[in-house]
Design a protein around this nucleic acid. Sequence first.
DNA 1: AGGCAGGTGGCCA
DNA 2: TGGCCACCTGCC
Length: 303
Amino acid sequence: MTLPLPRLAPRTWAAFPGWNPSPAVLAETIDGGQSFRWQRTAEGWTGVWGNSLVDLRQRADRLEWRNLARTPPDPSQTVTRYFGGDRDWPALTDSLPWRSDPHLAQCLAAFPGLRILRQPFGETLLGFLCSATKQIVQIKQMCALLAARHGTEIARHEMAPDSSPLPHRLPSWPELAHIPEADLRACLLGFRARYIAGTARFLTARPGWLEETEALPYPAAKARLLELPGVGEKVADCVLLFGAGQLEAFPVDTWVLKSLARRYGLDHWKPAQVAHFGRTHFGPLAGLAQQYLFAWERKFGGR
DNA sequence: AGGCAGGTGGCCA
DNA sequence: TGGCCACCTGCC
């Protein structure tokens, strides 16, 4: 006979402190290519990171969230960190050189309140190792399969609705190290499976390496990430921007290449040259500027 | 139906 | 240093 579990109070909706983005800007922030673990629901969005399982919904005048997992003990702290709630985003955005850059000004106006997420470092690395020459939908599928087949289930709050499609964590790096490459390939990873297996072996041989890397200043952290198989300039910058809060990281992907070619006259420039231009032109928060350019180009770039 | 997709690593001049 | 190409495979 099993005893009935103590009945926990249902998690209730709470207003999101200090952030009220439009539905489009919210979608661009959580589902625009920074993170691959958010799904639309009837009410809004469900997302997973670490041991967190969180719902978002928008009311007429505010954004609301609720925790669906039994852990962590203080979910509001986790949510605050994930959404960069410890930074003054309006001030950061205002310090970008939009006054002397009409296109940047146009991008800021098109996505007011856009934020850079601060995701768990190791998970960000995994997501972007999956990203090479893949579109966001497909990267999300890879992550979903990795989680469903190889990640531990997140203990849900008793009162949480069980319709959530994302009840599993991504596998940790030690867990990934035990998965045969063939099983990784079965998660639609293709040639990326070799990178992930290689990185898993590398990290398993060096306990603490990832945590040390996350804490290093940007140039040193990037140099270390480049040691990993499958991590080049672009992936390293994405991991540092979206998983370590390094706003000076300036990932150059095809969208940013397109953006700078068409809006800044940098036709035929190579990625390394564009990266240099970005750092000098946009300054120490180049990564934040990059996210606005990226979002604008994806949405309006077809003209 | 088939080319293409948020790159990287290896090889060659 | 710079340019090219293989690498997997599901989607539009």
